[in-house]
Write a protein that binds this DNA or RNA. Structure first.
Lengths: 278, 278
DNA sequence: TTGCAAAATGTAATAAAATTTCATTAAGGC
DNA sequence: GCCTTAATGAAATTTTATTACATTTTGCAA
């Protein structure tokens, strides 16, 4: 994101023609890739050498080199749309596609993550009397993972992956507790009812789920994870991984919120785990 | 990663010169970016028009267009080096860093993934009488996740996250079974002993773990996941996510191995799950 | 094998694109 | 207002890419 944000930066001093070119590049970077010095010069009303000087001035060898850098930057910003997996793909291709779609899913999650909501969630977790993660099916393992990650904090954290236990817990929740519901689709009846049950008892409920889903509407705070298409039978469950990264983020933010002495606490846990290692 | 994996794919039929060019591109893609048709032609011992035809044959407008696509792909592949998280980073920065380091971890895993071993693992799973995933701590949730993903296949798949149950299982394993041990570090005593126990009974053991670790040495097949530095207290556990992606890949490969009728089976599961949704 | 058709490759010419050179113009300081 | 310096553009040059056409190779049927 260096080139474009550099060009868009109004503080950097540029000659009149250079400003025109920069504006044109920022306005439609993709278009530049299929442009020649001549056509860009014509478009911006400057001469061809000026276009070239613009590129060399930015530190590139010339216009083609600038285009390569721009292409690279745009690629980082906008990951490729995931292709579905064909039954006759080679093993290498399947691997590449899955990694690619996972990456795309992560980028998408990052772009849509609500930082304000995240901070609210971290705040709520820090202050809650107890924190409970609930999920079913694939989301059960996310809930367990979250519990494991947060065990190292001085917060009473639980995970329930059984609908009976979840309901038993929900009826006993108070406004001082915190329930975190995890659901891939946000449309699992049991989990939605669970959230509603907790809300009736005025317990705050966080949803790590698909935005605009029924579950999201029943929560007091939502960390959105796009569901993705899932049209194909072979689609990997990339959004589950996005959920886990969100758990990572929450845990890290919590760690940063802890007072200084807490680092010592973490180190002690590490020392202790060492005894189970070879 | 379409261009490079395409070019590296030995199945695709190419003319002799095209093979030479493809090999050269795969060998050092970065170098191509600062190359002209002439120099690439000289390097590979073909003529300039052949280089051009190679590009147009792949669907690009010409050599410069090919270079742009290559630059974009390399950019996607090579993420920025991850920075550690500072206690005074803003929330947005923390989020960005975690996503970035997760992505870097995924790229690293992809680069080092042994495709041959992967195919062997899929083969072994397809033929095993039973498949059991074992993990402790953070890896427990990976094991559960793997079990959940594979439940949809007609393979008896289990997960054990308790060392007592794991050991009970291990002593009963036969050469027809398959044990899959998951460990972040590959240095957890209990899991290593578990693998050894199974091997004593001539049961094949797959390790999803750090390569060159004690656990890896005790396994008959290893799918390597680099441990990463983990020097920082705030480092997210990115390799756990890499392990999950590997589980995704295994499941997808297994799905592709299934006979045609199996698609119908999957669709039926989906229909059935629909009843639990709102 | 031989001979033919089709594909692949190379040579040389051409076209396109980028860069350099040099003259001109605009901007800023005194 | 005049001079100096930076910015710009026209034209020429060089580099790079592409096309046209000739030649070679390859695959295949008789």
């Amino acid at each position: 994101m260096t080139i474009l944000s550099d060009l868009a930066d109004p503080r950097s001093k540029r000659s009149k023609s250079a400003q025109k070119i920069a504006a044109c590049v920022v306005a439609d970077p993709e278009a530049i890739l299929s442009t020649t010095t001549a056509s860009l010069a014509a478009k911006t009303g400057v001469s061809e050498p000026t276009v070239n000087r613009f590129c060399t001035g930015l530190g590139y060898k010339g216009f083609p080199d600038f285009k390569l850098a721009l292409a690279a930057e745009l690629a980082r910003k906008q990951p490729r749309i995931t292709h579905n997996i064909d039954p006759d793909d080679s093993a290498g291709k399947v691997v590449a596609k899955i990694f690619e779609s996972t990456h795309a899913s992560l980028c998408n999650t990052q772009d849509h993550l609500d930082l304000g909501a995240l901070q609210d969630v971290v705040e709520a977790m820090g202050n809650a009397r107890s924190v409970t993660f609930c999920g079913l099916g694939a989301s059960a393992s996310v809930a367990l993972d979250a519990q494991h990650k947060l065990l190292r904090f001085p917060i009473p954290v639980m995970a329930h992956t059984d609908i009976i236990n979840q309901r038993m817990l929900a009826v006993g929740l108070s406004p001082d507790d915190l329930l975190i519901c995890i659901s891939y689709t946000g449309r699992t009846k049991d989990i939605i009812e669970l959230a509603e049950l907790a809300r009736e008892r005025h317990c705050p409920v966080v949803g790590i789920t698909s935005p605009d889903s029924p579950l999201a509407r029943s929560c007091s705070l939502v960390l959105g994870v796009e569901t993705g298409e899932d049209t194909d039978l072979y689609t990997p469950m990339t959004s589950r991984i996005a959920q886990l990264v969100i758990v990572d983020i929450i845990a890290t933010c919590l760690a940063l919120r802890q007072p200084e002495e807490f680092s010592e606490h973490l180190r002690e846990i590490k020392r202790n785990l060492g005894k189970t290692r070879r």
